Amino acid sequence: MTTVAPAGGLRRFVFDDELTVVTAAEHRERLLATLGDGAGLRIDLSGIADLDTAGLQVLLVARNEGVRLGLPVEFADPSPAVAEVLSLTRLEL
């Protein structure tokens, strides 16, 4: 599950479960809906216990949509699971 709350000009989006193929579509829709409201996002990655390629795609879609809309999208506090995937893929969010 996720929550969205204000965070100093950016809306804070907090993950508190996995971000995998099982949950990716739901999270993608919530992230894009939040961006569609015209607010930038600070995405807290500390609560992600499991991240697969579908989840990684969700994060990249959010970042790219922010660029397209001219809205800031920040990623914060990657969990060990997220840090491992980023290291393996040599991506920086």
Rank of each mutant, 00 (worst) to 15 (best):
E18N: 05
L31A: 04
D77V: 08
L59V: 10
G8E: 15
V4G: 02
I43Y: 02
E26R: 14
L86D: 13
E18Y: 00
I48A: 05
A7S: 15
R28Y: 03
L59H: 04
L56G: 08
A54R: 08
L32W: 01
A33V: 11
F75G: 10
D77M: 07
V73L: 10
T89Q: 09
D52L: 09
P6D: 05
A49Y: 02
A83F: 06
G66A: 06
G70D: 04
S87E: 15
L45I: 11
R11A: 09
P80E: 11
L59E: 02
F13E: 06
D77W: 04
A76T: 15
T34A: 15
T53D: 13
T34P: 02
L51I: 11
S46I: 06
S46H: 12
V67S: 00
G70C: 08
L32M: 11
P6S: 02
F15R: 03
S87A: 15
V85Q: 06
A5L: 12
D50Y: 10
P72R: 14
L56N: 07
A39V: 11
G40S: 09
L10F: 04
I43H: 07
V58F: 02
A49K: 13
A39P: 00
D50Q: 14
T53Y: 07
L19V: 03
E65A: 12
A76S: 15
L41D: 05
L69H: 05
V4A: 07
E18F: 00
E84T: 14
D44Q: 08
F75Y: 15
L56I: 13
D16C: 08
V85W: 01
E74T: 14
L69N: 01
R28N: 10
G8I: 00
A7H: 14
T89W: 11
Q57I: 07
P80M: 03
E29A: 15
L19Y: 00
E18M: 08
T53M: 12
I43F: 05
